[in-house]
Amino acid sequence: MIISNMEIIPGKRIKAHMGLVQGSTVRTKHVGRDIMASLKNIFGGELKGYTELLQDAREEAVRRMKEQAQAVGANAVINVRFSTSSVTQGAAELFAYGTAVVLE
């Protein structure tokens, strides 16, 4: 399955549009990471725990999007976009969406 955030796939022709597919996940941090994060808020620097957490969550969102695309019989998702929103204190929703298409 091809995942791309361009509107076309070079060298391939789009045979059919299957509509919008999406995947999302809501994640929250845990206390251990929170303590590290508050320390980092004093010292400054990268919050590696959060980076990993969000990266994992985003992969999960993409996986769900792929599953949905497979379910509708597509073999590629184009024009993929990511969006992040914080639902409540300490929890974030990671959302991926795109257009499922059938390529030749």
């Binding site: 091809i2 791309s4 796939i9 010292f43």
Partner: peptide
């Protein structure tokens, strides 16, 4: 992308970072 290049594969790539400011 520019038209007329050789056959190429498309792959979604991403990079992210969470960074904090100091006190």
């Amino acid at each position: 992308p520019p038209i007329g290049e050789q056959l190429e594969a498309s792959i979604l790539v991403s990079g992210s970072v969470v960074i904090s400011v100091d006190y």
